[in-house]
């Protein structure tokens, strides 16, 4: 039995992950969807198989558990699936002053946002390089371009992903494996609600839909290393890279202090 090539999407049950799964199915790629919520994954899998001629499998996993990435890869092997595209999308953010946030949750955030993508890539990339084709697509954030006060751990995990992707992309040049880091700005998903950030003051024209982000992402695979979807976000990211980092920290401190005030005090 030869292994069947699939695209593995983590955090696929909602938001950018679900949009990426739908958009990648359009390319005719078979999918493996993973997230914690099995019922939502199964509903999405049914929806995708109804609309596109692709096979979609579901593996429920909580990537906050340290063993989860290893078990996920073992399960893929067990099912005879060969990951050609890895989409590291799972992640979450916490908002508030770091010393007042529950530490256990901050450490979970590092496990999901940093440890799991690195471990999945570490376990899946060798086979991609051997085959001479594949992609490691990691969803970071525009927050990864500078320090964000009151989202200290979140922005740091995203800065990790940007730096890591840039380095690995350079190492992988010429291997046939594409490395892409996607840095979306404000995207309409459940994310902001879960991070406890009040977004009512953010003007509507700054927002993108998850579908727009997914569209730009799929088009950028193999073409660039760091993708900032949306012209405004791109300009903002360039500004963040050039601005003094301490200025970004101070600006986010005054802006986010109000937004997260009710949660952190």
């Amino acid at each position: 039995m030869t292994a069947r090539p699939v695209t593995l999407v983590t955090g696929a049950s909602s938001g950018i992950g679900a949009a990426l799964a739908r958009r990648i199915a359009v390319e005719g790629r078979d999918l493996v969807l993973t997230a914690r919520r099995r019922d939502r994954l199964e509903a999405l899998a049914r929806e995708i198989t109804d609309q596109h001629k692709v096979r979609v499998e579901v593996i429920a996993a909580d990537l906050a558990r340290p063993e989860a990435p290893r078990e996920l890869v073992a399960e893929l092997e067990h099912r005879g699936l060969e990951v050609e595209w890895l989409v590291n999308n799972a992640g979450f953010g916490t908002g508030g002053r770091f010393d007042r946030l529950p530490l256990a949750r901050e450490l979970e955030e590092i496990r999901v946002n940093v440890r799991a993508p690195v471990e999945l890539a570490g376990r899946l990339m060798p086979a991609m390089v051997r085959r001479g084709r594949g992609a490691v697509i990691t969803v970071a954030s525009i927050a990864g371009f500078g320090p964000m006060a009151y989202m200290a751990t979140y922005a740091a995990t995203k800065a990790f992903l940007v730096s890591w992707s840039e380095a690995v992309a350079t190492e992988a040049a010429g291997t046939g494996v594409a490395v892409l880091c996607v840095c979306p700005g404000f995207t309409r998903t459940e994310f902001q609600e879960r991070a406890g950030v009040d977004t009512s003051g953010i003007p509507p024209w700054l927002w993108m839909s998850a579908e727009e982000v997914a569209e730009e992402t799929v088009r950028a695979v193999g073409r660039q290393t760091v993708l900032v979807p949306g012209m405004l976000n791109w300009v903002a990211s360039a500004g963040m890279r050039l601005a003094p980092r301490s200025m970004i920290a101070r600006m986010t401190a005054s802006a986010n202090q109000r937004r997260t005030a009710d949660r952190s005090s």
Partner: peptide, 17 residues
């Protein structure tokens, strides 16, 4: 270098907080 990008960003953010 990615872990160090984390430490840098994290430290700057909590310093501001």
């Amino acid at each position: 270098t990615a872990t160090k990008a984390f430490v840098l960003t994290f430290s700057e953010a909590i310093a501001a907080e």
